[in-house]
């Protein structure tokens, strides 16, 4: 797989930890790219335990939320696990307004996510 441009991928034991390179996720081309890079983790690389660390993310649009939902569907199709972590309060509010807090498992920080997955 080519080196991803929108995300960074690290391993913590059997868990794949993903961080985002962009602090603002609004550009449509970048959202397409970041979505594909996430999809590849489960569809091409068959990773089964994934933590998305949102520590770098200061802003994201509803289009980015749509990609995350698409990723969650693929994770479930491939019987993998996904946990979100390190979400800033203002970003968490976006998840809360759209009720995506019901769809995603969200932990305060990466250590909590790694312990739970």
């Amino acid at each position: 797989m080519a080196t991803p441009r929108r995300i960074k991928v690290n391993e913590s034991g059997k868990v794949t930890v993903v961080t985002f390179n962009d602090s603002k996720i609004i550009d449509e081309a970048e959202i397409q790219e970041f979505g594909q890079e996430l999809y590849d983790l489960v569809e091409r690389e068959d990773r089964k335990k994934i933590v998305l660390n949102f520590g770098n993310v200061e802003f994201l649009s509803s289009a980015a939320l749509g990609k995350l939902i698409g990723f969650d569907k693929r994770v479930k199709q491939h019987k993998a696990e996904l946990i979100l972590s390190n979400i800033r309060p203002e970003i968490y509010e976006v998840f809360a307004i759209t009720k995506l807090t019901k769809l995603f498992v969200i932990k305060d920080d990466e250590a909590d996510a790694l312990a739970a997955i």
Partner: peptide, 21 residues
């Protein structure tokens, strides 16, 4: 309504909900 349980995975409607909020 994207916040209804049955629509949580629907593709649209979140932008409108966010503007309203």
């Amino acid at each position: 309504d994207c916040t209804a349980d049955e629509n949580l995975e629907c593709p649209g409607g979140r932008g409108l909900a966010l503007m309203k909020a």
